[in-house]
């Protein structure tokens, strides 16, 4: 589950899930929904394997989201379906989606970057919760 956090100039997301893997997948879907007005129209036509490692779990989330954003900006590939495995502070994932098609995808806004401002990942009530703000 994700919800939008209000911010004067930018925009943020609060994401919650039962497991860390689901949290990362949900954060990825939330990010897509910030970029595309109709994320449900993004079909899993091609896949990409990603492997990341970081020194802390919030940095791992940051790197994951930043990578999804970079793939979109440089290859115009919208990614919306994720299989995520996390082992300690290492992530392996298969991300699926398709090339942006203005005829079917209503692109909403350009996200310049993920920011570290109020970036958090925490265990809450037996599940996981994350917050992040993106620069628009």
């Amino acid at each position: 589950m994700y919800e939008v956090i209000e911010h004067t100039a930018d925009i943020g997301l609060r994401v919650s899930a039962a497991t860390l893997e689901e949290l990362f997948a949900e954060a990825g879907r939330g990010l897509l929904a910030l970029v595309v007005e109709n994320p449900e129209a993004v079909e899993p036509r091609q896949s990409l394997d990603l492997a990341l490692a970081a020194a802390a779990v919030e940095y791992l989330l940051f790197d994951w989201l930043a990578e999804l954003l970079r793939v979109f900006d440089s290859r115009h590939l919208l990614l919306g379906a994720f299989q995520v495995q996390i082992d300690g502070l290492a992530l392996r994932a298969r991300a699926s989606g398709e090339t942006a098609d203005p005829a079917r995808h209503r692109l909403l806004r350009e996200i310049k970057a993920i920011t570290y401002h109020r970036l958090s990942v925490a265990r809450v009530n037996g599940g996981w919760r994350a917050e992040f703000i993106v620069d628009i």
């Binding site: 020194a55 790197d63 970079r70 310049k112 970057a113 920011t115 570290y116």
Partner: peptide, 28 residues
């Protein structure tokens, strides 16, 4: 955007190594 992103990534842990205490991580 990528230059800034790369720089902030490279600065992880760096302020601390110079004894700089920051009230917000984004001030790296």
């Amino acid at each position: 955007y990528q230059v800034c992103d790369d720089a902030l990534r490279a600065l992880r842990g760096v302020p601390e190594s110079y004894g700089i205490v920051l009230p917000d991580r984004q001030l790296a």
